[in-house]
């Protein structure tokens, strides 16, 4: 494996169901994502994009093939190993999934404290920086109920990025954002890739993002059908 590749899959297959209901949803996925790259995953509904995201994001057990993430083999990894690996990843979901009883600051602090017991003042400082990056310095002590949809999504972005993850998995992260906010978030992810080596794998239908991607993968019926590399 090329050590510069943060993701390297060989013949990754996946099935859902058992017995006669068993259905293959991914077919021989071969994928190599360089560290710091920004990759967009596209495809029609049901093409397997989410399954790829959940497998590479250590949220599902790999059933078949070789799947390496930051050099760790995911096929056969225990639940505890997958949990540990997830601590090095950032997730941005289509729905913000913020904790309703925690303020914006506290939600982002949760992204810091997952790896170790970080002193509270340091965790808060890191969270304040992350919230500043997404333009929410003046909303840190707001509960999610008092934030707009776009603001909530930006808090979720800050939570995903605050721990300096090796890789960010994002599912339609700009769907709830206006044009400027969406551009800011994508630029932020790109900048983190350049400055910190954070790799991004992003599922989207948002055409505004496509021209910013280093690579666009198109998935159909569980197979990668096209790979577009941008200079």
């Amino acid at each position: 494996m090329d050590r510069n590749m943060i993701v390297d899959t060989r013949n990754m297959n996946h099935w859902f169901g058992t017995g006669e209901a068993r259905k293959q949803v991914l077919f021989d996925i071969n994928l190599a994502l360089p560290r710091g790259s920004f990759t967009v995953l596209m495809g029609p509904s049901g093409s397997g994009k989410t399954t790829v995201l959940t497998l590479l994001g250590c949220l599902r057990a790999v059933q078949d093939g070789t799947v390496k993430l930051t050099g760790h083999e995911l096929h056969g990894a225990s639940e505890a190993e997958l949990t540990r690996l997830r601590q090095r990843l950032g997730f941005i979901f289509q729905s913000h999934n913020l904790h309703e009883s925690l303020t914006a600051m506290q939600n982002v602090v949760m992204g810091v404290q997952v790896r170790a017991r970080v002193p509270d003042d340091l965790a808060r400082k890191a969270a304040a920086v992350a919230l500043g990056l997404v333009g929410l310095s003046d909303r840190m002590d707001y509960l999610p109920a008092n934030l707009s949809g776009g603001q909530k999504q930006r808090v979720a972005v800050a939570r995903a990025l605050v721990g300096n993850p090796d890789m960010v998995f994002a599912d339609e992260p700009t769907a709830a954002l206006d044009k400027d906010s969406a551009a800011d978030v994508v630029d932020l992810l790109k900048r983190l890739g350049a400055e910190r080596g954070t790799t991004t794998l992003l599922v989207t239908h948002d055409n505004r993002i496509l021209d910013r991607a280093d690579r666009i993968l198109t998935l159909e019926d569980g197979k990668i059908v096209t790979v577009q590399e941008h200079a």
């Binding site: 949990t83 601590q87 729905s95 999934n97 949760m110």
Partner: peptide
């Protein structure tokens, strides 16, 4: 009531 939040924490790597 907080299943989604807990699932999010799980995704983040909380054990």
């Amino acid at each position: 009531d907080h299943l989604r939040e807990y699932a999010t924490f799980k995704a983040m790597g909380y054990g």
